[in-house]
Design a protein around this nucleic acid. Sequence first.
DNA 1: TGAGGAAAAGAAAACGTTTACATAATAGGC
DNA 2: GCCTATTATGTAAACGTTTTCTTTTCCTCA
Lengths: 343, 343
Amino acid sequence: MKIHGDRVTMQEVAKDANVSVATVSRVINNSYNVSEKTREKVLKSMEKLSYLPNSIARSLKVRTTNTIGFVVSDISNTYHISIARAVEDVIAKHNFNMTVCSTGNDKERELSYLKLLMSQNIAGLILNTTGKNDDFIIEMNKYIPMVLLNRKINSPEFVGDLVGTDNFNCSYQLTEILLKMGHRKIFVVHGPLELSNGLERFQGFVQAMKDYGMDVGDDYPFKFNGEFTLNGGYKAIEYMRNLPERPTAVFSQNNMSTIGVLRACKDFNINAPEDVSLVAYDTVDNLNLMATRPTVASYNTQSMGYKAGKAILERIENPKLPNREFIEIPEIITGNAVGVLVK
Amino acid sequence: MKIHGDRVTMQEVAKDANVSVATVSRVINNSYNVSEKTREKVLKSMEKLSYLPNSIARSLKVRTTNTIGFVVSDISNTYHISIARAVEDVIAKHNFNMTVCSTGNDKERELSYLKLLMSQNIAGLILNTTGKNDDFIIEMNKYIPMVLLNRKINSPEFVGDLVGTDNFNCSYQLTEILLKMGHRKIFVVHGPLELSNGLERFQGFVQAMKDYGMDVGDDYPFKFNGEFTLNGGYKAIEYMRNLPERPTAVFSQNNMSTIGVLRACKDFNINAPEDVSLVAYDTVDNLNLMATRPTVASYNTQSMGYKAGKAILERIENPKLPNREFIEIPEIITGNAVGVLVK
DNA sequence: TGAGGAAAAGAAAACGTTTACATAATAGGC
DNA sequence: GCCTATTATGTAAACGTTTTCTTTTCCTCA
């Protein structure tokens, strides 16, 4: 628990350069009132002693850090990590770094991470929330600039930006692809409906169905909450197999459930597009190398991360920026797992 | 740049509870010398004011933080991120969090990240080094406990652990699979030979070839430095196409180059195993869903991350632990892209 | 040459904790 | 009830910076 040795401090640099610590501080933060001669002297001493500033001490004084919090349901989800990677690129240029946290959509875990981050005085937060800690987040938001990822916070008090996708419309569009091909019995593997993105995607599906004359009510047989997880997607297909009537198409509403769906189809020998057609919200890793490729709505996660990174930096600079929304447009990539329904 | 408001401090809690700050500090760190009565009183005040400790101030005093640095070439590489995820799970239980950094194998970027982390007084570092900043790392290592990932540091001064794979033997083994099937003209897409893992994998290949009577010298025609990148893997195949003589098998030595190889094969209509057989070090995402599946040496990255997380915690607790090595055993997964050579 | 002002440098307080040390309160033993 | 040993609490210094306020040094110009 104890650091091995003792690092060299400003005091020592000051002594070595025969100036006061204030002067050393000034050359480090290159403020203007320091003569060229002493600046060089100090720089030389810093070099000689290989001085490294203590960010902790600095942070205590200036009351902010160089760290951005990045809190998502699962950092190992390629969707999230590729956003994170882009964020990193943006903020690294400003000498920021990034603490990443996976909540697993668990209320307690999210809360404890948020508290930890807040106690660590992070400069800003990029958050894909579980939706279960709105009260705390609103409180935290009074101190920490925030950018939301995909999931909104239901409160007028929230101040910050949102980077996300057009859940409703994109979902509508994907559903329509199937509908236009004649599919009507569409099995939807949706996500948690408490989450704004889960709900909106589901609603997009419902609306499209409605517009084509299908009513998706409580008794609609072809739906399953896949929880946006791999396991959930797998279970959805297991469930589907046992239905008295088979759907002709499957619409999985996020990348993880899509992978689950694909694995289950493989395991149970369900072929696409012969047995079912497949469409999916989000793309999956190595899609172009896969044997069975659903038609997907692919988002440019790099661009999303870039925007999120830029947004949080701007918001740190100016915390009272008006709320903004950055909505990404998907690219529809047609796969080989979708076919016209032949009756 | 300025935090919105002012958070509540220990002073205020002390005032509210009508005790000294020392007492508040004591109940927070629940040291023993505090009566049940005042403990309750303080706890109540903390609750009432929703007090959150200031980790920065604490860190300044106790000279350590709750943060682990995780520095790898590319955090969005599924291999790394899934290790990171496991590390996170381990350390989160101890109320640590993790700052992740991608060096892109760039010397300067790695150096600036390491300096930043050191100035931030991280408690420990998990490092997949570029191999280009050994001097600084050795210096840093005097202050910060370290666990290396896959790539060694060439210095007797280094104190820390290594979590890695048995590069030489595993590479040998994969090569031998091809050799036993009759392949002799094996195209090896290796990594940077300055890196310990790059070199050892290459050497494993060379040794296996030698043991089967093939000499892989400077003039061996079937090799290409794919730099452990996707692009590199792709270029390797482009290069291979233009060789006067075609190899009968390809051995790509990390996951990124394997993806590059697979994409290139697809683009150039090179079929496996008809045209070439494919083996690979590391597995790739969604392998089981892919049309062309190389035979791979798959590592349990979760277990590796678990070990790395555990190791760093132990080392933080006790910095003068002897150096340790945790070498993971691969699972060979036979794919459909490997075939016996028919002359 | 000397006064005045600008520029450079220093002294010291502050950021919010922890902790060694000092003091006050309590309990136990007679 | 008094003394002592113990436990509980308080005081103040320290962690390594930044920054305000002073003081010193250096010019410029009459």
